[in-house]
């Protein structure tokens, strides 16, 4: 035996799949001819490998496509509303820019401070590059803050986001992301609250409704349901109705969905 069994074994999947070079194929054949143990194992596992093809898999349901295009519309609708015919909005200009690389937490804090100041005294938007740069800085800093390691910092990011430009899709989606996947319940709850500002946006509301499913905290689920009621979102009734029957949800959540349906009717 010139090659060890282990060396041959790791080539076997490619050998069975027929995606192996001629030389390697020959090496495997040579080894298998000489080594009974490997020959048996290759025969047995090779058959298994081939049979894996016969394990069926279902196709995705039509909802997958609907949901995707809903989301895409939600993202684009804001951009289209905002963009004037003559010149692209600061938003769409900002759009393609690579994210500035911040040199550590110090730079981050500086940007955060800058954002804080400009929020407390709302900037007068003039079509000047400096203003565009300023707004861009705010949005980037919010996104950065929402990805900080400290939950306190992320909660601060949510507070800033709740004061940001209403038509900013990246802020809306950053908040949605926080609602869906922030590890801290307090931060997620605050993000749901911050959404209130974006409530006039139908598409954004639909995304929020979507977020209920991926949520493991019943308290956050209830907060979303209540927000939809506060926003008087009639279009959510159907989905809320389905939630009253959804056994994956906790009882308290089902009950709140039931309450929401009657409130909205």
């Amino acid at each position: 035996m010139t090659t060890s069994c282990e060396q041959i074994q790791q080539k076997l999947p490619e050998y069975w799949a027929g995606i192996i070079s001629v030389n390697e194929h020959r090496a495997v054949d040579t080894h298998l001819a000489a080594c009974q143990a490997c020959r048996n194992e290759s025969a047995e596992l090779g058959r298994l490998w081939a049979n894996l093809d016969r394990v069926p898999v279902e196709a995705p349901g039509p909802a997958v496509r609907t949901r995707f295009y809903d989301m895409l519309d939600a993202y684009r609708s804001g951009a289209d509303e905002k963009a004037p015919a003559a010149a692209p909005s600061w938003w769409s200009r900002w759009f393609g820019q690579p994210l500035p690389v911040f040199a550590g937490a110090l730079a981050m804090l500086a940007v955060g401070f800058f954002a804080a100041r400009s929020f407390y005294s709302p900037p007068v938007v003039k079509p000047e590059t400096s203003e565009i740069a300023q707004l861009r800085g705010e949005v980037n800093s919010i996104r950065e803050m929402l990805q900080q390691q400290s939950a306190s910092e992320r909660l601060k990011g949510v507070t800033f986001a709740s004061r940001a430009d209403k038509s900013d899709r990246d802020v809306v989606f950053a908040l949605l992301d926080t609602v869906k996947s922030d590890p801290n319940v307090n931060v997620r709850l605050a993000a749901v609250d911050a959404f209130k500002r974006f409530g006039t946006d139908h598409a954004a509301r639909r995304q929020l409704l979507e977020a209920i499913k991926l949520q493991e905290s019943p308290m956050v689920q209830i907060a979303i349901i209540e927000l939809l009621v506060d926003l008087n979102d009639q279009s959510a009734v159907k989905a809320l109705n389905a939630m009253t029957q959804d056994d994956k949800l906790q009882k308290a959540v089902q009950e709140r969905a039931r309450w929401a349906v009657t409130e909205l009717h």
Binding site: S152, L155, N186, V187, A190
Partner: peptide
């Protein structure tokens, strides 16, 4: 309270 950061207490 930290003057620069928010605080939050939540319970269902």
């Amino acid at each position: 309270l930290d003057p620069d950061k928010p605080s939050s207490f939540t319970s269902m």
